Computed example of a mutant assay.
Amino acid sequence: MSLASLVPDTRVDPALLPSLLPWSLRFNFLYPYCDLFSHIVPTEPGPPRWNAELEAYYRTFDTQVWYLLGHDHDTDTFALEKLRSRQGELKRRKRKKEHGDGVPWADLEAAIAAVQSRILMRWSKLLGLHEIRLVFLRPLEKLHHSYDDFYLMRKVLPPMPYERPIARPCSLWPISARVPHYCDRQKRVCLWHDGVNWDEYALPDRPTTDSARRRFEPTAAEVLEDAEESGEAGWAEATMDDTTTPLLLARSNGARSSAFIPAFTGLFHRRHGQAT
């Protein structure tokens, strides 16, 4: 089995995603509710600080974008759990390679690092906005299960002054997957369109003293290296659907050294067919 075959195919290449979530937004509104980034900012137990401005920008993205990114996350999370299980079995048996023509320990370790890096990249560039919104909505939906999420947001979010996004609702398609045939492609701003400045569609940056002080965020490779030195729970022990905790992902231990990750993940950057 080749090294590349250990990392699953996904619909969207996270390396091609534009970075639409500015640093201060992530630091102040997203990272505090995801244990994956607890080395950057302490995890908070309360509900996320979702507001009318975040909701307005969230709605500029086509809803299928969240479905595809979430599906890819689930694919990677499932693969990561399986890879860790296989690695754990090798460790239990004190072997460096699976039986017969099986996979060596080093390949499992490299595949785990690649999948973890992809999860980090996808979450920090865009998916984190959707996942934190789900965390905010979860207790509301339990109380008002007969209402849809847009109705709930209109009811619970207080009005606030903010500059309206320039994109129309459901118009942004910043991913490499094709726009579904049932969507009006003429009304979508797509990743492959010429002359699109995606910085114009990024969410507003709201710097604070703390976010400015921590401006130099660790890279994905450094996050994994930091996780290697920790003794915390593995990634597969918490998921984004865990209703018992606001932690969307737990940090990993035993990740491969950071110098190897950028070169290895480049093997799995696939460009999907692009619509015209």
Rank of each mutant, 00 (worst) to 15 (best):
A227E: 10
Q186D: 10
D148S: 07
A220F: 04
R213L: 15
S5D: 02
H144F: 15
L247R: 15
F61K: 11
Y182V: 09
V135R: 15
R11S: 10
A15K: 10
E55Q: 13
A236K: 08
L36P: 04
L21F: 12
L17W: 06
D194L: 05
P169D: 07
T243L: 01
L25R: 13
S24V: 01
W50M: 13
P174G: 10
G231T: 00
K187Y: 07
W123V: 10
R256D: 08
G273P: 01
E217V: 10
E225L: 03
L90M: 01
E98V: 02
I112A: 02
A220W: 01
H193Y: 05
R26K: 14
Q274H: 06
S258N: 05
P8Q: 00
T243F: 05
R49K: 14
S117M: 00
R95W: 00
L83N: 01
Y57I: 01
A113G: 14
N28T: 08
E163M: 02
L30E: 00
F150L: 10
P246S: 12
P22C: 09
D199M: 11
Q116C: 14
L108Q: 01
T208R: 11
H73L: 06
S257P: 03
S211G: 12
V135L: 15
H73R: 15
V223L: 12
T265H: 04
E131P: 08
R93K: 14
I166W: 02
L90T: 00
E229S: 12
P165G: 03
E228D: 08
Y57D: 01
K125W: 02
D194C: 07
Y57C: 05
W66K: 13
D184N: 12
N51Q: 03
S117I: 00
P22Q: 09
R26S: 06
